[in-house]
Nucleic acid binder design. Structure first.
Lengths: 184, 184
DNA sequence: ACCTGAACACCGTTCAAGT
DNA sequence: ACCTGAACACCGTTCAAGT
């Protein structure tokens, strides 16, 4: 899953995916139109239908690529695996707030609310993240039941705040929310 | 803002609004199409454009009517004004979870994420609710700063959980979340 | 005042034909 | 293998014409 752009020559499915991410980040789910993709890639609509059977299949491919992108990013430059407990949670909150991820994250999440094939990918990833958050609470000394509750609330609050333009990029608020959730 | 359906005769703007709420509740924002409205009301598209200048104006009318609907419902059958503090918060959480409100609430909120004129109505209402929630925390004995933080987290968690089909109708979870947010 | 019916632009989709 | 170009259905929008 590279971010390289094409330089003339025939298109690959990945070119369509990357351009889809651009449109989603810039204008949200409603900006993802076949016509606009074709404009950017300088081909006609028939090309799209050679690479993908229809919009539905393209959506599924985008959702899948997005999950891969997330995994790769996570492996490459994010939280070292030996970071535990509170420090790990702090890193996760910071990662969520980072500007370059935020627009695509938000677009995919909004999109998942009206598209079941996207929802599936988002949900699968959410379950992984949620279990990680839960484990971090356990590492902080909370029992299983309490860790489940607190991780659910922290995660839900994160999703809720992500949708609010004003609060979503507010790092001090993020720190205070986490602080509240960690009080004994 | 009545819920009465039309019985033959000419349509009113309110007929279009009520039918719009039906479509939104049943199928979310993408189900709100002029063609489907016309099918249900047994008229042609021209009728729509006599009552509303365009889809954008209709959206704004729907958003406004929804805010009115919320206020009216609240006055009629919801939380008595002398209910304070914890009990008031419990009632608010219960009200959010109630099934008949949930579908429309969810659809409007999803819609607001991709439509600015809907966002404006949702946001105005959210600010009222949030300040109420905040006041309830103050009534529970939290200082101003702490009440602001806790009300923000509770509200954001509510929004986050609303989007999750599995968690949104889970009353025991709602009670436990509130309980966590009220701990000293 | 309230609505019909026909027209147009836009977008997703198909497909035969090109290289 | 990869793409063009023309066609069609669907939907938002306009508007002259009807009652």
């Amino acid at each position: 899953m590279t971010l390289a752009r094409r330089t003339g020559g025939p298109l690959t499915a990945n070119d369509w995916i990357q351009t889809g991410f651009e449109l989603l980040s810039e204008g949200g789910p409603n900006a993802l139109r076949i016509g606009r993709l074709c404009e950017r890639l300088e081909v006609t609509k028939g090309s799209f239908y050679w690479h993908f059977t229809d919009m539905c299949a393209y959506r599924a491919a985008l959702a899948h690529a997005w999950a891969d992108l997330y995994d790769e990013r996570r492996r490459r430059l994010e939280i070292p695996p030996d970071t535990k407990g509170r420090e790990r949670l702090e890193e996760m909150v910071r990662a969520l707030i980072r500007t370059d991820h935020w627009a695509l994250e938000r677009a995919m999440r909004i999109w998942s609310l009206t598209d079941d094939s996207v929802l599936e990918s988002v949900r699968r990833r959410d379950e992984l993240v949620l279990s990680e958050v839960r484990q971090a609470f356990v590492d902080c000394g909370f029992d299983d039941d309490e860790a489940t509750l607190r991780s659910s609330v922290l995660f839900a609050a994160g999703v809720g705040l992500l949708h609010d333009h004003r609060a979503a990029q507010d790092a001090p608020l993020g720190a205070r929310v986490l602080d509240l959730m960690l009080r004994q």
